[in-house]
Computed example of a mutant assay.
Amino acid sequence: MSELKPRWDIFCTVVDNYGDIGVTWRLARQLVAEHALPVRLWVDDLRAFERICPEIDINVAQQFQQGVEVRHWPSEWLHTEAADVVIAAFACQLPSDYMDAMAEREKPPLWMNLDYLSAEDWVIGCHGLPSVKYKTVQKFFFFPGFQPGTGGLLRERGLLERRRQFQLDAQAQRTFLQGLGIDRAEGAQLISLFAYENAGLASWLDVLAADSQPTHLLVPEGRVLGDVAQWLDVETLSVGAIHVRHSLTVQVLPFVRQDQYDHLLWCCDFNAVRGEDSFVRAQWAGRPMLWHIYQQDEDIHLDKLDAFLALYTKGLSPAAAEAMNGLWRAWSAGQPIGEHWLASRKHWPELQGNAEKWCLEQGLQADLAAALVQFYLNWI
């Protein structure tokens, strides 16, 4: 592999809320750092990219960041030589000139559609199959997933051991939290909240505020802030704001870079996340979690939610599984979740053990970057 040095191009159209750029940026960095591959990451929205990588210069069309060549994807495409491996992230449409450049190569490139993450059974049957063809260039489906026979999940080398060591080091956690201006009260449970707008939030905050155990709720900048502000009965919430309502402390955090967000998830006792990138990172945290899946037409997202829950709750007792299913489904439907939260708390030690067990089981599979590289090696 090191002798061939195939060039990789990854194309990302930033469609919604940083998940697509989050996934492709992690993948590009890992291919460079762990597989010594030359990688170009084509991004059509550098401003969104800047939120998770502040070093990005949004006014520069070509730059290197952490070993990755970052290229702005222009509205009017200029002729560029096609790479040996081409990844269209999340079914984005490649520029027609670039597709012609792929077809003009003496040896056509490996062209893959890196699809959305799903736990549905059909993914295993479709993973790795040929898709459409453009002239001489064949495209293949590549599905991330949770089961053998899929492409696995993004996981950097040594990630789980670094996470374990961090969670064993109380001082390291305090130092990290203090760096974000977080002063965790003794005995308070720490919860992170990263979600889309959700009408069911108020019932959860009501329960947390009335609880005998104090809660420190950390809310990174994002779409759910409006609902939090409404519950607090304040006009707006800005970074650094701290509000206390009985047992509940709410603190607004800045949008942080990816490695900082990982550490935030590792510090928390419970993580509410959304989309795809933060969903996977919360699983690597090994802590109980709640997923706000992105809503799709005709509620097909609920099929994805149920498929994941079937796998994730498989090892739980019937009562604990019922509590988790109720919590997740109500949350993604925008329904009140206060009672579901109380039901889940009755099974807390079991949910904690299940989260860590699930994390370690997923860690036994090949990671997504390694699976992509192996797919290329098998293809050539």
Rank of each mutant, 00 (worst) to 15 (best):
D16R: 14
T24V: 10
R26W: 05
P38F: 11
P38E: 14
P38N: 12
R40C: 15
R40M: 07
R47M: 10
A48Q: 15
E50W: 01
E50V: 10
Q63G: 05
W73R: 08
D84V: 10
A89H: 04
F90Y: 08
A91L: 06
M99H: 00
A101E: 10
E106D: 11
P108A: 11
M112T: 11
D115M: 11
S118W: 02
K135L: 06
V137L: 02
V137R: 03
F141M: 12
F141A: 01
F143P: 01
Q147G: 00
R162V: 00
R164S: 11
D169H: 07
D169V: 06
Q173Y: 07
L180M: 09
R184Y: 00
A188M: 05
S192G: 07
Y196W: 04
N198D: 06
A199Q: 14
G200V: 11
V207F: 05
A209Y: 04
L217C: 02
Q230E: 12
V234I: 14
A241W: 04
L248H: 10
V256L: 15
R257V: 13
L265K: 09
C268H: 09
V273M: 11
R274N: 06
F279Q: 05
V280G: 05
R281H: 01
Q295C: 03
D299Y: 11
L302T: 06
D303C: 05
K304A: 04
Y312A: 13
G315N: 15
P318G: 11
A323R: 06
A323Q: 03
W328Y: 11
H347E: 09
W348V: 05
L351G: 03
G353H: 08
K357G: 00
L360Y: 09
A366I: 02
I380R: 15
